[in-house]
Nucleic acid binder design. Structure first.
Lengths: 131, 131
DNA sequence: AAAGGGTGGTATATTTTTGATACCGACGAT
DNA sequence: ATCGTCGGTATCAAAAATATACCACCCTTT
């Protein structure tokens, strides 16, 4: 049943745009990788892996996406232990600002959020639907 | 084999913190809901649903999380068609800024990203691993 | 009065995403 | 000669997102 009264999704263009943006670079690993490269400048595959605690698969996938989207550059050195270096492109550098804004907000408000959670959970404790 | 040289995850405290932040409010729907409430002020459940094109389940879940984290307030009006209104709390309001920064960056760079993608994909076309 | 619609959800099933694991070739160290 | 490192890929299981159906409630329409 697709023909219901449902509106044609995303009335506000801004939401639609934002949705697109977030679909591209809005996942945790992308942001984390950019933040990491932002801090250390140039990192190799396994350095990122160790630094972030990400699985090889997700790192590989996410790096390729970031490279595809032009935020990260990949430099392959055909030395004998092969060496691949990742760094931010200018576009990636420009992404540092919003990420920083997000991080700042988070750092400032993590405790507030934790407190709100505790309050909410405590209140929920008193209303068990059963038992 | 856990005892390898693997570092104990998240060497840089900033990444760890950022990770926490993103675990809380870093998913697409949370950001989108905040953005939507930010634009319209107060919205009801089904208004949000229609506006965002989100499934009921995800909307319900995400709203509850946002409420739990203190970013969104939920007001239940026991009228006869039950009416539930959602709005941003002061904390939620403060989250508008980083979201706005993100949205701005996205709007400014979506085309650049698309172009980078096109270039990348075109280059990849020429190196088919098989066939 | 019976049928259908809108309200804010929940329960269940299906699909998509993520993550863990094993493996690869090439080489250096033990 | 076996092990480990490098940067991945292939495979499979677990988790999350989504779609769908359904609920009680009442109102409107027929």
């Amino acid at each position: 049943m697709e023909g219901t009264t449902l509106a044609p999704i995303a009335q506000c263009p801004d939401c639609k745009r934002l949705n697109e943006v977030l679909s591209r670079v809005g996942d945790r690993w992308s942001v984390l990788i950019v933040a990491s490269l932002s801090q250390y400048g140039v990192l190799r595959f396994n350095e990122l892996k160790r630094n972030l605690g990400i699985s090889q698969r997700m790192l590989s996938l996410t790096l390729r996406e970031l490279e595809r989207d032009g935020l990260v550059s990949r430099t392959y050195h055909p030395t004998i232990p092969p060496k691949v270096e990742y760094a931010l492109t200018p576009l990636g550098e420009s992404f540092r600002e919003p990420v920083k804004a997000l991080a700042m907000w988070g750092l400032e408000n993590l405790e507030t959020i934790d407190a709100a959670r505790a309050t909410y959970d405590a209140a929920a404790e008193k209303l068990p639907k059963s038992a």
